[in-house]
Amino acid sequence: MDLLAFAIERYNYWIFITLMMMGLFIVIARGNLIKKMIGLNVFQTSVFIYYISIGKIAGGTAPIYLPEDLKARMAHGGDHAPLPGKDAIGAGAIRVDESLHGGAGFAGNDLQSLAGKAAPPEGAALHSAPEGAANDILAAPPLTIEDHAGAAGAAADLAKAAAEIVYSNPLPHVLILTAIVVGIATTAVGLALIVRIREAYGTIEEDELEAADDIAEFGYVPSKRGLPEQRAGA
């Protein structure tokens, strides 16, 4: 049961793994070059989702610096925390300053305090790592993404209050913006190549391409696979 909960709490990773495997399978199993490109895209997108999910904090906001707001909050100090048992929020506000420089560490610390968990920073294996804390918060009942979306009473209030000071870790998102650009460029180059292949060979099916190359090189198809008649020339 615990294992199941453990698995479900990390649903973002399951999405990532499923998509990644689907993408890889399409790349390997499909003979049509366009389908290969799509598979490659699915594969890359899965990595985008992985990166985005490790930086996401439920209720966290975009990391935008608001000087006056920050000053006001600094003046209020710990009193600002509106909910009992969540004094950590005040501490979080003070730490915002750091967050501008060290997104990663900040996100982790705050999350842990927000979740009301006394997880020690150097705690058990995998998910006590700073970014792993994203999972802690996903697991904490009042703060799941669904609750936030559903605007469920106190949870929504807390999320709102938290949103004022809790930032999603921007670094993975920025990194993946770069990777998305790279992915688009790769897709564009790939599709351009496919167009050229189609012009040169008259087909974009891998089997037929191989057969056409074999005919051009040897005059026959060494690997007989019951292919349709080939267009050897182009």
Partner: peptide, 8 residues
């Protein structure tokens, strides 16, 4: 990504 998640 995995190394980043482990270390920040």
């Amino acid at each position: 990504g995995l190394l980043y998640q482990a270390t920040g």
